[in-house]
Design a protein around this nucleic acid. Structure first.
Length: 482
RNA sequence: GGCGCGGUCGCCAAGUGGUAAGGCCGGGGACUGCAAAUCCUCUACCGUCGGUUCGAUUCCGACCCGCGCCUCCA
């Protein structure tokens, strides 16, 4: 089934063209590693991850490259503040990023090139651009891309060059004026940034003197080297990268190599938190660590971040996290019921291993609609809607073992596409004070002895101490009240 | 000013030219000593005004409101 995706370039839904003679080339702009990634960053990476999974289930061999930007103003500045070498500094955040990716169940990219490992290619690219007169060295020693030399500049964002220049006159453009004198045109952007004192030891040699690569250039060079100079099939990133970053990538690559840079463009919308734009000052730049500290299941975080349209801004709220937890729970009950239908019942612990994977199935059975929704521009909301429709239809009550097995495979495939593992919520390991444990134990004893008055009194006492008791038939649990 | 997105039940959110999926919350019920959990069950005419049409929430136009990018940013 063809996978359709909204293509930013053509501004329309397009069936992705899958090459027949080679894998599908998918490049994503990855993180700049100057600190922990926040959930907004992860939204983009998660959406890309789901797309990749859908393609793979569909039988497409995907080469997924996601770079790491390990040199820029922020990484340099922060490393110096920490008295660390740039490499030392970025290494810790790369590790942290990998850890976070793992806990969100993101598949590892096929390759993860780092900008600093590709300085040579970047210099070669600049040389090419200088040679072809697409670039020049400015008065400050930096090398700039001559936007005027690229007729097609602006085609991704549908911006006209003459409009770009006039932008300096409006409020948004004011900041641009600062270093206008260094370059020919306000819209020219840096390919190579000349060394400055504040860069410390962080500079590299180039034909234009010491300095460091510009951000836009890094991606062009890494795309080129990662895919051996081929035109790539899909390029992804947050919507904010659409301009100027991706526009600049196109300009650099197409000017230098004289062939189309990329066929489809894939941008995901941003995240708000509790209705507000994420920002440090508002204290709402949540990291996974923050959410874990609040005892949220990271699978619910994943669910929240992928459950609605990736093209729409998403308002991340704690309400939505709770809703996701409940929804996940509902899916778990459904899976559990299916597992019980099997002739040789499988316990929930092995569910993910046995079923959440790429089954080689053509027919998704009851979940065919759910699957088709995913293929239709990654419509995860409709997919989940179909899934819950099946869950609510009570269709499993009459199922035999074989039918349950089949549905489990379909379910597992859909969950794999979404990257959702079930039954991952770990018992919240609160440190329960001894006194509370004793009270709870006393209450349980009273209940067993049918001394309900005493049991209820103890429950109340526990409640006022901030602890809640939940009974099952054979046991009880103690939870702190939020 | 330029480019772009959106306004659907209390919240979140799909969708279609023929009278609107789903999730959460809430109400009712079952079950349970109670509570929790679980299960069953209930609730919308789609921003405003025009137009096209046999018929529009879905197409077109205007307007109102909200938002993003145009500067580092997933």
């Amino acid at each position: 089934m063809p996978v359709k995706l909204y293509d930013t370039f053509s501004r329309s839904n397009q069936a992705l063209s899958i090459p027949k003679d080679r894998p599908f080339y998918f490049y994503c702009c990855g993180p700049t590693v100057y600190g922990p990634a926040h959930i907004g960053n992860f939204r983009t990476f998660l959406v890309q991850d789901v797309l990749r999974r859908v393609l793979e289930i569909d039988g497409t061999d995907v080469v997924h490259v996601r770079n790491i930007t390990d040199v820029d103003d922020k990484t340099i500045l922060r490393s110096q503040e920490q008295n660390q070498s740039l490499a030392e500094f970025t290494e810790q955040w790369i590790e942290r990023f990998h850890k976070d990716c793992k806990s969100l169940n993101l598949l590892s990219p096929t390759a993860e090139p780092k900008a600093l490992d590709h300085i040579d290619e970047q210099i070669q690219l600049i040389e090419k651009l200088v040679e072809k007169d697409n670039a020049y060295q400015g008065k400050d020693g930096s090398v700039y891309f001559r936007v005027q030399s690229c007729e097609a500049y602006g085609k991704l964002n549908r911006i006209k060059q003459d409009e770009l220049k006039t932008q300096s006159s409006n409020s948004a453009g004011q900041a641009n004026l600062a270093d206008e004198y260094d370059r020919e045109s306000i819209s020219d952007f840096a390919l190579w940034k000349a060394r400055k004192p504040e860069d410390g030891n962080n500079f590299w040699k180039s034909p234009w003197g010491e300095g460091r690569p510009g951000w836009h250039l890094e991606c062009s060079a890494m795309v080129h080297s990662s895919f051996n100079g081929a035109t790539i099939d899909l390029h992804g990133g947050g919507i904010d990268l659409c301009f100027p970053h991706h526009e600049n990538e196109i300009a650099q690559s197409e000017s230098a190599y004289e062939k189309p840079f990329c066929t489809h463009w894939f941008h995901s919308a941003h995240l708000k938190v509790e209705g507000e734009k994420m920002s440090k000052s508002l204290g709402n730049l949540y990291t996974l660590e923050d959410l874990e500290a609040k005892n949220y299941n990271l699978m619910a975080v994943r669910y929240t971040l992928i459950a609605s349209s990736y093209r729409q801004p998403l308002n991340f709220t704690f309400d939505s996290l709770h809703a996701s937890e409940s929804a996940l729970n509902k899916i778990e009950r459904f899976a559990e019921a299916l597992l019980e239908k099997l002739e040789q019942p499988v316990d929930t612990d092995s569910f993910n291993h046995n079923y959440v994977k790429t089954h080689a199935i053509k027919d998704h059975g009851l979940l065919q609609n759910a699957w088709e929704s995913l293929c239709n521009n990654l419509n995860t909301a409709a997919c989940l809607g179909s899934l819950f429709g099946v869950i609510g239809s009570n269709s499993i009550s009459k199922m035999d073992s074989a039918e349950a097995e089949e549905l489990l495979e379909s379910l597992g495939t859909i969950l794999y596409a979404l990257g959702i593992n079930l039954f991952t919520a770990t018992a919240k390991d609160s440190n329960i004070p001894k006194a509370i444990l004793e009270l709870a134990e006393a209450r349980w004893d009273a209940k067993q002895n049918k001394d309900y008055a005493k049991a209820d009194a103890l429950r109340k006492e526990l409640l006022s101490a901030g602890w809640e008791i939940k009974d099952s038939s054979a046991d009880y649990e103690i939870h702190p009240i939020d």
